[in-house]
Amino acid sequence: MKTLVTGAAGFIGAHTTLRLLQEGHEVVGLDNFNDYYDPQLKEARVRWVRETAGDFPLYRIDLEDEYGLEQLFAAHRPEAVINLAAQAGVRYSLDNPRAYLNSNLAGFLNLLEACRRHPVKHLIFASSSSVYGANHCTPYAEQHNTDHPLSLYAASKKANELMAHSYSHLFGIPATGLRFFTVYGPWGRPDMSPMLFANAISSGQPLKLFNHGEHQRDFTYIDDIVEGLVRLLPQPPEADQHWDREQPNPSTSMAPWRLYNIGGSRPVHLRSYVEMLAGLLGQQAELQLLPLQPGDVINTCASSSALEQAIGFAPCTSLEQGLARFVEWFRNYYLINLPLPGESSRSAAAPEGVA
């Protein structure tokens, strides 16, 4: 299947592109290589994919570039789209809200319009566990309320789910949204907790834990995320024939649209997570306990039973296994080849979502 992967130089995008190429899919990549974090890491990911699985066309354009996106679709006619491009980060949205309006809303609209003009068999798009917001009823299930986001980032992801539904209803675009839960692993983002914490521990800097370290997070290893994406790709949703307008299920529809959680379903206390990471690095962690930050969700835990029923798979990599693989990569990439990432001063509360 010819698949367009947006955000192909990003953390999840690079891993997904690699897996698709290895399985014989034709992949077209798109990424704007912005400077939200070091573009050199994005370039390195692309080199890693090409050296491991072969070359693929990669367009350096932005989803906000409506004309460029139209030209790409017209030239390549992708059969499927995996949309992993977005302005990420919860805390960044407090200071730079327009970045989320431009990328996550205007950019996603351009993508939907392109899928409308050049129909695809399946659009898979990244959502986030952040959409559950003020809902404290865990484990989160797709039927739970998501009407109270705690950050603009979360609101933009909720908006993506609604925008995709409207296009599925109006134009028959089969669309599946995946709510990612704290994705981590090799080649991860420098603004997320594994990299921030590993950097602080390795360089002997204080490690900032907001909410006094009392968060819990449902960590999901990158390979499990990619497995879910690849299995879903050939299974576009169909209209739910049992959908009831009087008692609507928020995760299905009379349109070809579906939402799934994808998470490890094994939440970990943040202090235990830090202890495990420090042990793997062979160093002590100096903790700086700080109050809860605006926009943070206190605890997350996914119910992935709906996804497992649909594709016969749910995330299964233990945190011990996943962190060990991350630390091996971190040592090779940062402690041998490059200087430590200059991100230790950025705030690290509860780890954020991915997309």
Results as ranks from 00 to 15, higher is better:
Tyr100Met: 02
Gly107Ala: 01
Asp147Ser: 11
Glu142Arg: 15
Leu178Pro: 03
Leu170Asp: 12
Arg91Phe: 11
Asn104Ser: 05
Leu111His: 10
Ala164Gly: 14
Asn96Leu: 04
Ser128Cys: 05
Ile124Arg: 03
Ala126Pro: 15
Asn96Thr: 09
Ala99Asp: 11
Lys157Asn: 08
Cys137Val: 15
Pro174Leu: 09
Ala164Lys: 08
Leu94His: 01
Asn160Arg: 09
Val131Glu: 14
Ala155Gln: 06
Cys137Gln: 13
Tyr132Gly: 01
His118Asn: 10
Pro119Met: 15
Leu105Ile: 10
Pro190Lys: 06
Ala80Ile: 08
Ile173Asp: 12
Leu178Gly: 00
Glu79Ala: 13
Arg91Ala: 10
Ala85Lys: 00
Ala80Met: 12
Glu79Gln: 13
Thr138Ile: 15
Trp187Ile: 00
Ser103Gly: 04
Asn102Asp: 15
Asn83Met: 07
Arg179Pro: 10
Val120Glu: 15
Asn104Ile: 12
Arg98Thr: 03
His165Asp: 01
Arg179Cys: 02
Leu109Phe: 14
Cys137Asn: 15
Val81Gln: 04
Ala134Ile: 09
Pro97Lys: 07
Ala86Ile: 02
Ala126Glu: 13
Phe180Cys: 04
Lys158Gln: 11
Tyr100Arg: 03
Tyr140Glu: 10
Arg116Ala: 05
Pro97Asn: 08
Leu111Ala: 08
Val131Pro: 05
Tyr100Ile: 01
Arg189Asn: 14
Thr182Tyr: 01
Ala86His: 02
Met192Ala: 08
Ala159Tyr: 00
